[in-house]
Design a protein around this nucleic acid. Structure first.
Lengths: 203, 203
DNA sequence: TAAAACTTTGCAACGCCTGCAAAGTCGCAG
DNA sequence: CTGCGACTTTGCAGGCGTTGCAAAGTTTTA
């Protein structure tokens, strides 16, 4: 890897670190691009050649992990049913997101949960990976109906998003989170009709 | 209703109409707040006492319909199972969104599908109504496990969002949309395990 | 070592959004 | 109907995110 590329990587990291640190110290909207640039020792203009917006810097690490998962997802044990593959992918993603809990993991989560605009962007990312799940799904079972694949991906990602967000917001430990996700997967697999509370009438 | 309130309603509508019209004519980012204000015959500053941001004006009508649905959802025939109630609510929402297809309905959809930032905000709205579904669900079956309710809402809303978005993007007519939604509901109710394509292994 | 390719920087500008205080409008009590 | 209090509109000034452009600086290649 050449010097040029090494420097870019380094600068990117410097900017992201400075940003997260300042967000932690003074808060998100109290930190300006100029502040971040100064702390990272680059010009304000340079910030934007590394991140398209101030909001994106919050997702820098998450995006990296997500990209890794997408690479790894291609490796698939033979003989798996698509459902089993999906289950495996879900757990890989969860582990990846948990691994994103580096120095600033907790801060990122808190920032996202607190700012509506960051939440919106997080949801957009979810939606984009949902698209990816659809592709993966039609790849695994080429004969599947398109609308079916779309619904399945939507329900799967939607259900997972809901549990994980809840676990994050409630500060569940990894163990408890895993259990909750497992339960969530069961519900989505067996259907809402399998939940007793939903199927008997209420007065 | 006093003159004051009538005027406010009128101004709000004037702003929204002017905005949508200009977005249609020149495009979203090519239209400035100043343009909208001028077309609606108010000062630019006034725009922001009616809508918190430029993006929100795109959702003005959708938000109104959604609020109506939330009102109406309270009326519930006795003896329904929670699952039946949910099914009913889903169709009410779909009809409401279809009804939002006023003069500018198609434009709104197109704008949202084309701009990532608007898409993000649309997803945030989905997420907010998901919260509402959780509340509704725990109201209907008070004994339900909290995490279960969250997962169910997530899967339901996620699945519906996915189909509806797809139908919108593909320009399905109302009939076809309804069929697709019906099928989607069946999948979510009976579980991903009920889809044959997912349960037999692939080589 | 010089040219080519790429990166950083400063500058100027646009447009969204906000706080504030002055001016205008409406509703109501006397 | 008149004047006072409540509410709405407006203009102004300014902060901030974001972008395009061209000059200056750095790394790679020939």
């Amino acid at each position: 890897m050449g010097l040029r590329e090494r420097k870019k990587r380094q600068t990117r990291r410097a900017i992201a670190d400075a940003a997260l640190r300042l967000f932690t110290e003074r808060g998100y909207e109290e930190t300006t691009i100029a502040d971040i640039a100064e702390a990272a020792d680059v010009s304000p203009r340079t910030f934007f050649s590394y991140f398209p917006s101030k909001e994106d810097v919050v997702f820098a690490e998450i995006d990296e992990r997500l990209a890794e998962v997408r690479e790894g997802v291609a490796r698939r044990p033979a003989g798996e049913t698509p459902l089993q593959s999906m289950r495996r992918i879900v757990f890989e993603m969860i582990d990846a997101i948990a691994a994103a809990h580096g120095e600033y993991g907790a801060i990122q989560v808190q920032l996202i949960l607190e700012r509506p605009s960051l939440q919106a962007r997080a949801l957009k990312r979810m939606n984009d990976t949902e698209q990816h799940v659809v592709e993966r799904l039609t790849e695994l079972s080429p004969d599947i109906d398109e609308v079916d694949a779309i619904v399945i991906a939507g329900a799967l990602v939607g259900g997972m998003k809901a549990v994980i967000t809840h676990c994050r917001a409630q500060g569940y430990d990894p163990e408890a989170t895993r259990n909750a996700v497992d339960r969530a997967l069961a519900i989505v697999e067996h259907g809402l009709g399998s939940v007793p509370a939903l199927t008997h009438p209420v007065p």
